[in-house]
């Protein structure tokens, strides 16, 4: 297990690590590649490893299906609204948690954590009943709220950890030099925390964009976003159409991922999930 810990790996160790690595790569990537191939398959029957015919017609079929294009539009409207709302609601709180000592600070952190500690779908079931009473079912506002709930942890904990990592002495120096509180925040604190905030923004954007189960429960039948559309695509349309739509739905994720890959792997998320 800890093969080669601290020492030079032997040939057997290298072999084991190669096999293990290939197994992980295949496990993670194979389903995605298999799905991606399907989007270009004209006809493909078991047990052939590759399609017998290639085709691009599924791509035009997606654009010709009205329900699919309207769900794309809806997703592109709702997600930015949720992300900006999350920033407005959470970033000031993240700063306060990092910088101010006030009674109940630990409790606030735990409460925000608790939003993630409720098994999601159980929570959505109870939310739906409240939404009936507030007339938020099948409404854009209801969907925005459902998606906002999933962003709060990212948008408070990760920026809070970033703000806390900035030495207060830097802010004090700016203050001593005569800068006001706001100016200090915008010229010293915010630029230093910006990379982590970007990670939080991207994770929140993706959390909102990809949210399917709550949107499905609360937004149906009229507010159908891209991931919710997938529920009905799978099984009701040709597999190839679902595959094409899957690729389209993954594009924002893959693009945004490549922007912050290093930071995410570098422990920004991990740091954010430990209460300090």
């Amino acid at each position: 297990m800890t093969a080669g810990a601290g020492g030079r790996p032997g040939a057997a160790g290298r072999f084991a690590s190669a096999v293990f690595g290939i197994a992980v790569l295949v496990f993670v990537l194979a389903p995605l590649l298999w799905l991606a191939l399907r989007a270009f398959a004209g006809s493909w029957t078991y047990p052939h490893l590759l399609p017998s015919q290639w085709s691009l017609r599924w791509w035009s079929q997606v654009w010709d299906t009205p329900g699919l294009t309207s769900s794309i539009r809806l997703s592109l409207i709702i997600t930015p609204i949720v992300t900006v709302l999350a920033m407005i609601v959470c970033l000031p709180a993240a700063y306060a948690i990092a910088r101010y000592r006030f009674p109940g600070r630990q409790l606030v952190l735990m409460t925000i954590f608790a939003t993630n500690a409720f098994p999601r779908f159980g929570l959505f079931i109870t939310m739906a009943s409240l939404f009936y009473s507030l007339n938020l079912m099948d409404r854009m506002a209801g969907v925005v709220i459902v998606q906002l709930i999933g962003t709060i942890v990212f948008m408070t904990w990760i920026p809070a950890a970033a703000f806390a990592a900035i030495p207060p002495s830097l802010e004090e120096a700016a203050r001593d030099a005569g800068a006001g509180a706001l100016r200090t925040f915008f010229t010293v604190t915010l630029p230093l925390a910006a990379p982590s905030i970007l990670v939080a923004v991207i994770l929140s954007f993706l959390a909102a964009f990809d949210e399917a189960q709550g949107t499905f429960l609360v937004g149906s039948p009229d507010i159908v976003t891209m991931p919710v559309q997938m529920y009905s695509l799978i099984g009701n349309y040709p597999d190839q159409v679902a595959a094409v739509f899957s690729i389209m739905l993954s594009i924002p994720s893959v693009l945004l991922l490549s922007l912050v890959r290093r930071r995410v792997l570098g422990g920004t998320i991990a740091q954010g999930f430990t209460i300090r």
């Binding site: 298999w34 399907r38 990809d210 399917a212 991931p227 997938m230 529920y231 799978i234 899957s246 739905l249």
Partner: peptide, 12 residues
Amino acid sequence: PVVIGANAILSC
């Protein structure tokens, strides 16, 4: 997105 992961697992 989890829906896509699920679809990918289903077809794989």
